[in-house]
Computed example of a mutant assay.
Amino acid sequence: MTQQFMPDGDLAYTVLSDLKRVTREYATAATESVCPTVRQSFTQLLNTTLQMQGELFNAMQSQNMYNAASPALKQEIDKQLKSYQSTQQKTNQFVQQAHQAMPAWQQQQAQAAQQQQQQH
Protein backbone atom coordinates (compact mmCIF):
# COMPACT_ATOMS: atom_id res chain seq x y z
CA MET A 1 0.00 0.00 0.00
CA THR A 2 1.31 3.46 -0.90
CA GLN A 3 0.77 6.38 1.38
CA GLN A 4 -0.55 9.51 -0.34
CA PHE A 5 1.61 12.65 0.02
CA MET A 6 -1.43 14.83 0.75
CA PRO A 7 -5.13 14.67 -0.03
CA ASP A 8 -6.06 15.57 -3.62
CA GLY A 9 -8.07 18.60 -2.50
CA ASP A 10 -5.14 20.04 -0.54
CA LEU A 11 -2.76 19.41 -3.42
CA ALA A 12 -5.13 21.03 -5.92
CA TYR A 13 -5.64 24.03 -3.61
CA THR A 14 -1.85 24.45 -3.33
CA VAL A 15 -1.50 24.45 -7.13
CA LEU A 16 -4.43 26.88 -7.42
CA SER A 17 -2.76 29.23 -4.92
CA ASP A 18 0.48 29.09 -6.90
CA LEU A 19 -1.37 29.84 -10.13
CA LYS A 20 -2.97 32.88 -8.46
CA ARG A 21 0.46 34.08 -7.29
CA VAL A 22 2.02 33.55 -10.73
CA THR A 23 -0.89 35.47 -12.27
CA ARG A 24 -0.10 38.47 -10.07
CA GLU A 25 3.60 38.24 -10.95
CA TYR A 26 2.92 38.10 -14.70
CA ALA A 27 0.45 41.00 -14.46
CA THR A 28 3.06 43.09 -12.65
CA ALA A 29 5.76 42.15 -15.14
CA ALA A 30 3.52 43.00 -18.11
CA THR A 31 2.53 46.31 -16.54
CA GLU A 32 6.12 47.32 -15.82
CA SER A 33 7.63 46.14 -19.12
CA VAL A 34 9.00 48.91 -21.30
CA CYS A 35 9.69 46.75 -24.33
CA PRO A 36 6.51 45.90 -26.29
CA THR A 37 7.81 42.41 -27.14
CA VAL A 38 8.50 41.61 -23.50
CA ARG A 39 5.11 43.06 -22.51
CA GLN A 40 3.42 40.87 -25.10
CA SER A 41 5.25 37.78 -23.83
CA PHE A 42 4.20 38.42 -20.24
CA THR A 43 0.64 39.15 -21.37
CA GLN A 44 0.51 35.81 -23.20
CA LEU A 45 1.88 34.03 -20.12
CA LEU A 46 -0.69 35.83 -17.99
CA ASN A 47 -3.55 34.76 -20.25
CA THR A 48 -2.35 31.14 -20.32
CA THR A 49 -2.02 31.09 -16.54
CA LEU A 50 -5.48 32.61 -16.10
CA GLN A 51 -6.90 29.90 -18.35
CA MET A 52 -5.16 27.16 -16.34
CA GLN A 53 -6.35 28.70 -13.09
CA GLY A 54 -9.92 28.81 -14.37
CA GLU A 55 -9.81 25.19 -15.53
CA LEU A 56 -8.39 24.00 -12.21
CA PHE A 57 -10.96 26.02 -10.28
CA ASN A 58 -13.81 24.51 -12.34
CA ALA A 59 -12.44 20.99 -11.82
CA MET A 60 -12.07 21.58 -8.09
CA GLN A 61 -15.55 23.05 -7.81
CA SER A 62 -17.10 20.12 -9.71
CA GLN A 63 -15.39 17.73 -7.25
CA ASN A 64 -16.60 19.78 -4.25
CA MET A 65 -13.01 20.71 -3.39
CA TYR A 66 -13.62 24.45 -3.49
CA ASN A 67 -16.45 26.47 -2.01
CA ALA A 68 -16.95 29.79 -3.72
CA ALA A 69 -17.46 32.89 -1.61
CA SER A 70 -20.96 34.09 -0.98
CA PRO A 71 -22.28 36.57 -3.52
CA ALA A 72 -21.62 40.26 -2.89
CA LEU A 73 -24.46 42.72 -2.50
CA LYS A 74 -25.03 44.91 -5.56
CA GLN A 75 -24.96 47.99 -3.31
CA GLU A 76 -21.47 47.11 -2.09
CA ILE A 77 -20.23 46.52 -5.64
CA ASP A 78 -21.70 49.85 -6.79
CA LYS A 79 -20.09 51.62 -3.82
CA GLN A 80 -16.66 50.14 -4.64
CA LEU A 81 -17.07 50.95 -8.34
CA LYS A 82 -17.84 54.60 -7.54
CA SER A 83 -14.82 54.74 -5.25
CA TYR A 84 -12.53 53.32 -7.94
CA GLN A 85 -13.95 55.68 -10.58
CA SER A 86 -13.37 58.63 -8.25
CA THR A 87 -9.78 57.53 -7.66
CA GLN A 88 -9.24 57.15 -11.40
CA GLN A 89 -10.63 60.63 -12.06
CA LYS A 90 -8.42 62.17 -9.35
CA THR A 91 -5.38 60.36 -10.76
CA ASN A 92 -6.12 61.63 -14.28
CA GLN A 93 -6.50 65.19 -12.97
CA PHE A 94 -3.23 64.91 -11.08
CA VAL A 95 -1.37 63.67 -14.16
CA GLN A 96 -2.83 66.47 -16.30
CA GLN A 97 -1.91 69.11 -13.72
CA ALA A 98 1.59 67.74 -13.34
CA HIS A 99 2.04 67.67 -17.11
CA GLN A 100 0.79 71.27 -17.46
CA ALA A 101 3.05 72.47 -14.64
CA MET A 102 6.07 70.86 -16.24
CA PRO A 103 8.41 73.30 -18.04
CA ALA A 104 8.39 73.03 -21.83
CA TRP A 105 11.90 71.50 -21.99
CA GLN A 106 10.85 68.72 -19.59
CA GLN A 107 7.72 68.06 -21.63
CA GLN A 108 9.89 67.67 -24.73
CA GLN A 109 12.22 65.28 -22.89
CA ALA A 110 9.28 63.24 -21.61
CA GLN A 111 7.78 63.01 -25.08
CA ALA A 112 11.14 61.97 -26.57
CA ALA A 113 11.60 59.30 -23.90
CA GLN A 114 8.09 58.00 -24.51
CA GLN A 115 8.71 57.81 -28.27
CA GLN A 116 12.00 56.02 -27.67
CA GLN A 117 10.28 53.47 -25.41
CA GLN A 118 7.65 52.82 -28.07
CA GLN A 119 10.36 52.11 -30.65
CA HIS A 120 11.89 49.35 -28.49
Results as ranks from 00 to 15, higher is better:
Gln118Glu: 09
Gln100Glu: 11
Glu55Ile: 08
Thr87Ile: 06
Thr14Trp: 05
Thr14Ile: 08
Lys82Thr: 10
Thr48Gly: 11
Asn47Ile: 05
Gln44Gly: 13
Phe42Trp: 02
Pro36Gly: 05
Phe5Asn: 13
Arg39Gln: 04
Lys79Cys: 00
Asn47Leu: 14
Gln107Ser: 00
Ala68Phe: 02
Met65Phe: 14
Gln61Thr: 09
Gln53Asn: 08
Asp10Asn: 07
Ser62Cys: 01
Asn64Val: 03
His99Tyr: 11
Leu81Gly: 02
Lys79Gly: 06
Gln111Ser: 06
Thr87Arg: 14
Met1Tyr: 06
Thr49Met: 03
Gln80Asn: 12
Phe42Asp: 00
Tyr84Ile: 13
Gln111Thr: 12
Phe5Val: 15
Gln107Leu: 05
Gln44Lys: 15
Gln89Met: 06
Gln51Arg: 11
Gln88Leu: 12
Gln107Trp: 03
Met52Thr: 11
Ser33Leu: 01
Pro36Phe: 00
Arg39Ala: 04
Cys35Thr: 05
Glu76Lys: 12
Tyr84Glu: 11
Phe94Ala: 14
Val34Leu: 07
Leu50Ala: 09
Phe94Met: 12
Ala59Gly: 00
Ala68Ile: 11
Asp78Gly: 02
Arg21Leu: 04
Leu50Tyr: 05
Ala104Asn: 08
Val95Pro: 04
Lys74Gln: 15
Gly54Cys: 06
Met1Asp: 12
Leu73Pro: 06
Thr14Gln: 10
Pro103Thr: 07
Gln88Phe: 14
Gln4Thr: 14
Ala113Lys: 04
Val95Ala: 07
Ala30Trp: 01
Met102Asn: 07
Gln3Gly: 07
Asp10Ala: 14
Ala110Asp: 04
Ala69Phe: 06
His120Trp: 04
Lys90Gly: 08
Ala72Leu: 13
Ser83Ile: 11
Leu73His: 15
Tyr13Trp: 10
Gln97Leu: 09
Asn67Gly: 14
Gln116Lys: 12
Tyr26Ile: 01
Arg21Asn: 05
Glu25Leu: 10
Gln96Asp: 13
Gln116Glu: 04
Val22Thr: 13
Ala104Trp: 01
Leu45Ile: 02
Ala110Asn: 01
Gln93Trp: 03
Gln88Trp: 09
Met65Pro: 02
Leu46Trp: 02
Ala101Ile: 03
Ala30Leu: 01
Val38Pro: 03
Thr37Ala: 15
Gln75Asn: 12
Gln106Pro: 02
Tyr26Cys: 00
Gln93His: 10
Arg39Leu: 00
Met52Phe: 14
Glu76Ala: 10
Arg39Cys: 05
Lys20Leu: 09
Gln40Val: 02
Thr49Phe: 03
Pro103Gly: 02
Gln80Leu: 07
Ala101Val: 01
Lys79Phe: 14
Glu76Ser: 08
